[in-house]
């Protein structure tokens, strides 16, 4: 049976360690709405590669540190 994979992210944590950056600030920096940042953070919307790279660049992290494509069972 095919493994069920899901896109997880650490945006909330990364925002916290970036002087409690707000969703609105992050949204303005990457050129999307606050609602989009909220949806990405909650894992309800998978961003395009471009937006994913922009987010990683804002936090000065490789994209793997921001987004993980993992099995549903993995924590």
């Amino acid at each position: 049976m095919a493994e069920t994979l899901t896109l997880k992210n650490n945006i909330r944590t990364l925002r916290f360690f970036s002087n409690e950056m707000t969703q609105q600030e992050l949204a303005s920096k990457i050129g999307v709405t606050r609602q989009t940042v909220m949806a990405i953070e909650k894992g309800k919307y998978s961003p395009s590669l471009e937006v994913a790279f922009k987010i990683a660049r804002i936090f000065n992290k490789p994209i793997d540190d921001v987004f993980q494509y993992t099995s549903l069972d993995e924590k």
Binding site: G31, V32, T33, Q35, T36, A39, P47, S48, E50, V51
Partner: peptide, 11 residues
């Protein structure tokens, strides 16, 4: 505030 924003990729 919201009315002037351009449409983003999700929208």
């Amino acid at each position: 505030e919201g009315s002037g924003l351009p449409e983003d990729e999700r929208e």
